[in-house]
Amino acid sequence: MSTHSRTARSGDRVAGALAYGVVGLGLAFLAIPLAITCLMAFDARTFLGPLPPPALSLHWFERLASQADILSSLRTSLVLAVLTTILSVSIGTAAAVGLARGDFPGKGILTSAFLSPLIVPPVVIGFGLLLFLSKAGITNGMARLLLGHVIVTAPYCIRTGLASLLGADRRLTDAAMILGATERQAFWSITIPLMKTGIITGAIFAFAISMDDVSISLFLSDPSATTLPVTLVSNMRAAFDLTIAAAAVILMAVTVVLIVVLDRLVGFDNVVGQGLFRS
């Protein structure tokens, strides 16, 4: 073996080990904190003690369930997430269909405008809405939250809707019409089913984002309507104990359910193809 290829090989070995090391450490860094949180949520101790917990119990969950503000804010969050999802999917799907229907002047600008809430810091959206809605006289907490959440989730639905329409050839609606379907019938029997993956992906993202948002909700929540994350943040700042770990486990469970639904109905590979993650 020549010296050249020998150094090349050892260089490869070092580089390979380095790369695998980074990958391993990265995955560990992603997974370990979440695993610790799940474990600590079942800690039988009544105080925050070092790992590992000497015994397991559900008492942090019981404590969580006994807090009235947690339960009412969980209800608010769920109602809000469902309403947000319905509104965002309807508005976003309609807009995607409108944008995909032929070229028209201003199409590019309109598309960018629809997606622009994604690039504005959420705190700015929240603070801006707070000032504007107070001025406009809209004081209903739920309505304010709903508007704020729709603003940041509808762009996802538009994006996934547009991506799923890329595969839906205009000729398919032409085919439906030549077979006797009216424009309306073609829309419901061809266009909407073809957008299925985009609609589901958009809906799940909208639900998850609405469930998790803090930055916007913190400004728009009021005593009548406070979301779960907002309550958790203020609890976290008041006292750092493990009830929040218990809440985190519950929220993670919700996310996992969403993920399983997403995989069953759409498939992860298709989610990546929905244009949500692109350079």
Binding site: L30, P33, L34, I36, T37, M40, I204, F205, A208, I209, M211, D212, V214, P229, L232, V233, M236, F240, I244, A245, A248, L251, M252, T255, V256, L258, I259
Partner: peptide
């Protein structure tokens, strides 16, 4: 799953 997880959970987990 990580993308869709609450930033709150992740922050809390890091704090823990």
């Amino acid at each position: 799953t990580l993308v869709l997880s609450s930033v709150l959970i992740k922050t809390y987990a890091i704090e823990l």
